[in-house]
Design a protein around this nucleic acid. Structure first.
Lengths: 188, 188
DNA sequence: CCGATAAGTGAGTGGTTAACCACACATAAG
DNA sequence: CTTATGTGTGGTTAACCACTCACTTATCGG
């Protein structure tokens, strides 16, 4: 009967993964400064003290969350590119945009990115993480799509416009100005 | 000798203006959640207690700061449009973009906008202020430039890209990915 | 000069927060 | 069974925050 009692403790590595995954939801609404480590702990189902055994500081935790978000976004773009119906820059960029739109239909990833950008202004460690994330992302998009500077830049500009639309919840407002901003922007 | 002693107290209205102007710098670096009312008070040269006589709450103060930023941005766009070398949508949009680039060469205004967008997610009052600000701004840009939906949308998409570039301080990084993102984006 | 009103502050208050530590419990190896 | 190691928590703390209030000082109309 040795299998009756399953393992009840996770390994630290598993717990760290759980925290990263659940902390996205915690940080999404109120960002780096506005989210407490207690909220992160509650979302992960552990005590606040244990958060500090898994991560050396709140800043390190947030940086890890941001990096994890970038990994997920990149994975989504790769999946989109792989499913593109053609190999022209336009086709690949469109497919990646579509994959991205699906990814962020749950808006938490997007929101964490926004908050990370805002916090990057004053927190050097976060700024470095955001820079590194975008550096890889820009080069990936350029390489995978074969698009020129102009096309890649527009891809990211539209992405940033998505952030604004999501932050304002512009979909909920029916007015000419929201229709102008959201025109052609997919969301599921 | 009645002019020897100048007035040493400001009117409440003057103080409120001072606070709004100086609070932009205070909120710019750490945003709504990360900036304390003590920092705002110090920037304005008054006691923290008096901040609460001038504004009913930190939230109301921040909303007023955001609205003030929108007013300044709008004024800048109007000045740009007035100085446009032609009346075609392209010429007017370009002139407004140039005026905007000059306005935000001191990046505090930009940063407050970014932080306001991020905070808008969880704070209804701030979301309302951001929505109202963009509503007026989109309609102004549309009306003043005569551009179509596509042009107006691109104008704001590029503006959002500026936010990203500013937040990461991308100018300071010399690499292909930063050159791609910042290509054609003026800054003074 | 006086009384009213407005500008402005020092000194709190109750509540919260990031971080720490001593300790309890679970697991695995010998 | 025992010892060692890793998982996990309750309790605490020093600092800090938004917000309040009693009080002082300046201004101004009469």
């Amino acid at each position: 009967m040795q299998t009756e009692r399953q393992r009840q403790l996770s390994t630290a590595e598993e717990r760290r993964d759980t925290v990263l995954r659940t902390a996205i939801g915690a940080f999404a609404s109120r960002g780096y400064f506005g989210t407490t480590t207690t909220e992160v702990a509650k979302a992960a189902g552990i005590s606040q003290a244990y958060v500090y055994r898994l991560f050396p500081s709140k800043e390190a935790l947030f940086v890890a969350v941001v990096e994890y978000c970038f990994v997920r976004v990149r994975a989504s773009l790769e999946a989109g590119a792989a499913a593109a119906p053609g190999s022209s820059p336009e086709a690949v960029l469109d497919a990646m945009g579509d994959a991205y739109a699906r990814l962020i239909s749950d808006s938490d990833l997007l929101l964490v990115q926004m908050h990370a950008q805002a916090a990057a202004v004053s927190e050097p460690a976060i700024r470095e993480a955001v820079r590194a994330g975008y550096a890889r992302m820009v080069e990936y998009v350029r390489g995978a799509s074969g698009g020129d500077d102009r096309q890649v830049q527009e891809f990211f500009a539209v992405g940033m416009l998505c952030h604004l639309v999501a932050a304002m919840d512009a979909d909920k407002v029916d007015a000419p100005w929201t229709r102008t901003l959201t025109a052609g922007i997919r969301h599921y």
